[in-house]
Structure formats: C-alpha cells, structure tokens
C-alpha cells in the first residue's frame, strides 16, 4: 500500500528537514541579539566569569525584551544561562531545578506563577544561590530574595484611571461617560492594572465601567471582544485595553465599525508602534512600562551583588508614566537602552 520509493522519498525528506532544523538551531545559537533559548555559553562553561541563571516565563515580546535588557545589564561581566518556561508552571519548576543543579552564582526569575516561583526561591535559598525577581515581586519575606526590579501594575492602572478621570472632569457635563475594559488574562498582572484603574476612575463619579471582558493578551481575541463590546454598548466613550498589542486589535474593530472617532483608547505598554499610535491620535494614551529597563536594572543589581555591593533598596519599583501626544517624545524605550 505504500511503495518503497515513497518510503525512500519520505526518509530523504525527513532527513533534509532534520538537517535544516539543526542548521537553523546552530545558526541561531550564535545570534547574540537572540530573543530566545540559551543566550550565552551553556552549563557552567563560563571560565572565570560568574554564571547567572535566568528563568524566563514566556516567549512573548515583553519577556524577550526583559531578556535583552538583562543581557545588556550584565554585559560581558557574567555568563547568562537562560531557559524558558513557555507559560508552563510545571516547566518553570523543572527549569529551576535544572539551573540550580548547575550551581549558578545568581538566579534571575521572571515567574509564570507565584506558587511555582515561590518553590524555586525556596530551593535557591536552600542551595545558597542569591535570587533576583524581575517584573513581579511576589515574595512576602524580603530576606528570601537578594533583589527585585518590578512594576507596580496597580499603581500604573491608577495612573491611567486618574488620567481618564481628569479628562472626564475637564470635559465637564454631568451625563454618563461609558467606559469599556478589554483586559488581559484573568488572575494575573492585568487584574491589578484594572483594579487600580477602576479605583482611580471613581474620582469622576459620572464615569461608569459598563463592559469588561478579557482579550487574553491576544490581538485577534481582543478584536472579537471589541466587536461584541460595540454591539452591546454602542454609546461607549472610552476603552481601557491592558496592552498595546490587544489595543491594535480593538482599534481595528472600532475602525471597521466606524467608531474610532467616538471611542478613545487608553492602553499600557510603550512600544514604538504604540507611541506612534498615540502621536497619530489612534490611542488617547499609553504608558512607558519598559521591560528592557526591568531586565537591564536586574542585570546591574546582580552584578552589584556579585561584586559584594548591597543595594540600598533591594526592591526597585520602576516609575511608569501615562504617555499622551504631549510627552510621547520623553517615553522610555520599550526594548532598547534609550
């Protein structure tokens, strides 16, 4: 039923594909700008340089920019051993075990989940490996971590909410101002952002959140949610979208429905495209939450620790500002040093 020649063809094709895949893998391993995989020499092959393990939580743009910032922050002073948990809690725990088995001089954790992250912190403490947290500080006992460089998502949400409340107040009038929310995935950072936003928005009593659904950090999903939102709330005035990628999906839906002039988008991020959309008037506002800076400052904190210098403040909270047309030129770069 399946001729010998076809089997031979199959074997040749699979061999060619495997060779190509290996070639691609080899090619990418020399890419020092690389966004993924192990970024430097593997497994303790760092000679005299200290070895820093980095457990990255995901492969999305934000995480890859944290990785780039970390590499830039460490420079040539340390070897970086990076693994990626790909949003998998189980993989994160395994990655922690694997990296700690290599006895790194320090460990940086961009966690997927608070529980699995706590396990890794405990294990690193047991192995006397200093741990640094990036983006999220989830450890209640500060003595367990050597340092953390984080965003305060609640404070960021409050800044956006405060900005909108100010807009509403400045516009005057006592009519109801309708606000929609397209959030990220529930149960994570987006919840803090939304909670902070709602709290600050209370300063404008006539502003009311009339729609709130998750876009799951996915542009296509966010576009679909926005289509439904417009149907359910045709008189909507503003929409908060938890990140810029989803905000572009929401914008597409608003444009398709002819509502892009009516519904103003507030979002969070600060990518080059997001800033351009603010300057072009497609977004009313965004923020400059730079993951590169998170990684960069974490790298510097690690080097300080390895050099025996203790940080004045083990937990650094990066300031985030609301970016509008007026101050877009001064926004922190999303994925670069400046």
């Amino acid at each position: 039923m399946f001729g010998r020649s076809l089997r031979r063809l199959t074997a040749l094709t699979l061999a060619a594909a495997a060779t190509a895949a290996l070639g691609a893998g080899c090619g990418s391993s020399s890419d020092d700008d690389g966004g993924s995989g192990t970024s430097a020499a593997s497994g303790g092959g760092g000679g005299d340089k200290p070895v820093v393990g980095f457990i990255n939580g995901s492969s999305v743009e934000f995480n890859m920019c944290v990785s780039r910032g970390l590499k830039a922050g460490l420079g040539d002073a340390a070897e970086l051993n990076e693994v990626n948990s790909r949003d998998d809690v189980g993989a994160e725990v395994s990655n922690g075990e694997d990296l700690l088995a290599r006895k790194p001089d320090a460990l940086v954790l961009q966690t997927v989940n608070v529980q699995s992250g706590a396990q890794i912190v405990d294990k690193a403490n047991g192995d006397d490996v200093p741990v640094f947290l990036s983006s999220v500080d989830f450890v209640r006992d500060p003595s367990k971590v050597a340092g953390a460089v984080v965003f305060d998502n609640g404070a960021t949400g409050a800044k956006i909410g405060g900005f909108l409340a100010e807009q509403v107040r400045a516009a005057g009038g006592s009519g109801e101002v309708k606000v929609g929310i397209v959030a990220g995935a529930p149960g994570a950072a987006s919840d803090f952002l939304v909670r902070g936003f709602k709290g600050a928005l209370a300063a404008a009593p006539n502003a009311k959140v009339v729609f709130e659904q998750p876009g799951m950090w996915n542009r296509g999903k966010a576009a679909s949610v926005a289509e439904n939102m417009i149907q359910a709330q045709p008189d909507l005035d503003y929409v908060l979208v938890s990140n810029e990628d989803m905000a572009f999906g929401v914008l597409k839906s608003l444009q398709a429905a002819g509502k892009d002039g009516q519904v103003k988008i507030l979002t969070n991020g600060g990518t080059e495209l997001g800033l351009r959309a603010v300057e072009d008037g497609e977004f009313l506002s965004t923020t400059d939450a730079s993951p590169f800076q998170i990684g960069f400052r974490t790298g510097r904190a690690v080097l300080d620790q390895l050099d025996g210098r203790s940080a004045a403040e083990p937990v650094q909270t990066l300031p985030v500002q609301v970016i509008t047309r007026d101050n877009a030129a001064g926004a922190a770069a999303y994925c670069a040093a400046s």
Binding site: A21, G34, G35, S59, M64, R219, F248
Partner: peptide, 17 residues
Amino acid sequence: SILEGFSQATTNAETIP
C-alpha cells in the same frame, strides 16, 4: 512545537504589523 519555535525565532517573538 517545531512550528511555534520557528515562528518565534523568525519574529523574535514580536508582532509584525
């Protein structure tokens, strides 16, 4: 898994407008 890896390697995990 292979295709996901290629997609991310091709884009550096970034969205392409």
